[in-house]
Design a protein around this nucleic acid. Structure first.
Lengths: 315, 315
DNA sequence: CGCAGTCGTTGCGCTGAAGGCAACGAAGCG
DNA sequence: CGCTTCGTTGCCTTCAGCGCAACGACTGCG
């Protein structure tokens, strides 16, 4: 009871004769006759009245044609859905990001992306930590992830990597503001607030401390970047973050960012990741392209190590 | 994009591996792989994530499987409808009858039939004349027709023919009541009411009059058998009808029926007809069988000239 | 790190279903 | 009664789908 058989009956019934149906379908009359006969044999009930010049459906035949029409409508609906996916007129994108990336540039990018693809739904999930971002991506709960280097996990494929050094961030009224370059040791006397130790930026900083043999003790830690920013506004604290996280405040002069003389912190990079071997749907692929250009724009001289087009195939 | 291809993907996705699907479907693994690949080629979008051990659907794949599930549900619904038709749990029967057949026996038959086939809808259409019955049957507006001989029409096939002589019908108080046999001439002195000339029984009577060289003049004619019965109740009138039409009243002694000595009237027969070449649906076929036994029961010694099973095939 | 086991993929030969061609019987029309 | 057109059927061809077997790829174990 496949589509094909019924279609012949459908055409024959619609056009009133097997010959017209055969002509319309581009096949021989015998095929139409045989397919209808076979259909009747399969169902076990006559579908047309034989021994006539024109095609005349029996009641069961009418029933079958009605069923076929419903089937056609269902298929058309699916085809429409499919061409939506094809044309990117619809689709869902799950994006996992650390709080450090929340900011005006990302918002701008999302606004532009949405203007370009009005039908695409984007879920920008702010994760508590980089580890969670990695987990979401590895377990297919997110299509793409935005983290500070996390290439250790074997299930993760790095699509794009852009240098994004960690800098000392402070209010413009803070004593450290105005410096061109700071050493880690220079930071020690000042009151420091930092993200929790689960944050990748925090882990990078600890690595730099070990390397430079300097131990920094934060007065306050939090899992909220927003809280850290509030602390900075008082002018008493400074923190260590990628410029990306405070680009808006730096741009309007509220905050100052000062590079730190540490190879570990300078080599820090933002990474756009997906699960290894995952074949991304069309919609996330567009998001990937948008994110890549966004990242490249954020860091003037970007070191792109991933190949975007390579992400569509496994390995 | 046929059913078959999708089924393989469906099974593979459900069972988690192509091998399990192949095993479940009783085919080789290669077939499953190929069908899925072909499906992807047809749609133009990847449906599973290749280069993995287990089957993992892409978003489009999930969409397709959902669509297939809907399709399956639709087909199941149709199968149920079909087996309803097969099992005669549903169906419509259009029956065209002359008013002369309306009566207790027909009612009883319909009641029994409905009790046996509760799902079958029967439309017993009372036609104004035998000609209309023939027209309804010939033009497929009725599955079956019940008439007094009307075999002239070439589009009509007589399925069953049962002798049903026309008799003189009168109240038990009427002078003619009590006679064993009447000649046409015996009727002449009494007041006669008859159906209109469009009725087949009336035409048969006229033929008998010609044959016997007797002219009967009705005082009243009507197209309502019920009205004729009312006239009989007065005791002043008599009429000529098949016993079938007044069997209830004859049985309870209200009316009397007296055979008439006329070959034309004695040879009168009730005929069960359908359109020539029409292949009746299952439900009307059952009605046909019920009607045949009903007719045979009405006339003790029935002359059945039609073959019931012959009605299912054309000509 | 190597090895075995299992997975999906692909080349090759085969089979059966579907199609084309032609002849036939049947039905409608003059 | 003959002509046309319809649906049906036998015979042959074609090709999609299948099984078999070999292959590369990935996983898990020692």
């Amino acid at each position: 009871m496949q589509d094909l058989n019924i279609r012949y009956l459908y055409e024959a019934a619609k056009l009133g004769s097997m010959r017209a149906a055969a002509d319309s379908l581009g096949v021989a009359v015998s095929s139409v006759s045989r397919q209808i006969a076979q259909l009747e044999a399969e169902i076990g009930i006559g579908l047309i009245e034989h021994g006539r010049r024109n095609i005349l459906l029996t009641e069961t035949g009418v029933l079958l044609i009605e069923h076929y029409s419903e089937q056609l409508r269902l298929n058309e609906a699916f085809d429409a859905k499919l061409s939506d996916v094809r044309g990117l007129r619809t689709g869902r994108i799950h994006l996992a990001i650390g709080e450090g990336f929340i900011g005006q540039p990302l918002s701008n990018m999302l606004v532009r992306f949405n203007a370009k693809h009005p039908g695409l739904f984007v879920n920008a999930h702010m994760s508590a930590s980089s580890n969670e971002v990695v987990r979401l991506v590895a377990e297919d709960d997110a299509h793409l992830g935005l983290v500070f280097q996390s290439s250790e996990d074997p299930r993760i494929r790095v699509l794009t990597s852009v240098r994004q050094p960690l800098c000392a961030i402070m209010n413009r009224t803070h004593p450290l503001a105005g410096h061109k370059l700071l050493k880690l040791a220079d930071l020690k006397p000042h009151r420091l607030c930092l993200p929790e130790s689960s944050f990748r930026t925090r882990q990078l900083l600890q690595a730099a401390e070990l390397q430079e043999r300097v131990s920094l003790q934060p007065c306050i830690t939090s899992n909220s970047i927003t809280l850290l920013k509030s602390l900075l506004e008082s002018g008493d604290f400074f923190t260590v973050l990628p410029v990306l996280a405070v680009s808006k405040e730096v741009e309007n002069g509220q905050f100052a960012s000062v590079p730190i003389d540490s190879t570990a912190l300078q080599a820090a990079a933002v990474q756009l990741i997906c699960r290894l071997g995952r074949r991304l749907p069309p919609a996330p692929l567009r998001m990937l392209a948008a994110l890549t250009t966004y990242l490249e724009a954020c860091a003037g001289s970007a070191e792109v190590s991933g190949i975007v087009s390579g992400a569509v195939t496994a390995s």
